[in-house]
Amino acid sequence: MSAPKSVYIVVSYAPGFHKLLEYVRKYHPEARITLVHPRGYTATESERKYIDDTVECPSRSLSPPSGWWGLWQLSRELRQRHIDHLGFQYESITLRLFGIACQPKECVAWLGNGQLLQLPLNLRATLADLITHRISGYRVMLAAAWHAYLLGANNEPPERPRR
């Protein structure tokens, strides 16, 4: 991530979100960090330490289906602000589409294993990226199911032990 002037981060309820804000503040001390949150959300003290500003989404949730309208409305406002960086903790199809709609200079997601993911800002690349990962994900998921259910099926499940 190059040195941005403004970083917008979409709030997440996942553990470690304040650590993400701390990380962004540490690496971009000069940037203006804005927290994007749903209506009615109050930033905690540990979050307020690292942010300069907040912007409210008109909907009460950021998740589909109710969140889509709010995010679409908000994306129009953010587009006018010409933001440098938009970031998410983890990623989802909704957030990716929101990222494309906001048209930031860069869009990133910080994943749970520490990976910082540069998200493409065009629809075709986004869909291609998602499909590629879904295919490899399904492959692993089915391999795990094969082992767990079919290879383990020779063993009769024991009676539930009592403790």
Binding site: L111, L117, T132, R134, G137, M141, A144, G152
Partner: peptide, 20 residues
């Protein structure tokens, strides 16, 4: 065999994303 199925039931959603 019991624990393998249980683990799969909890983790499959994360696995299928391709980015667990």
């Amino acid at each position: 065999h019991v624990c393998g199925k249980c683990a799969w039931q909890r983790l499959w959603r994360s696995l299928r994303t391709g980015r667990p």
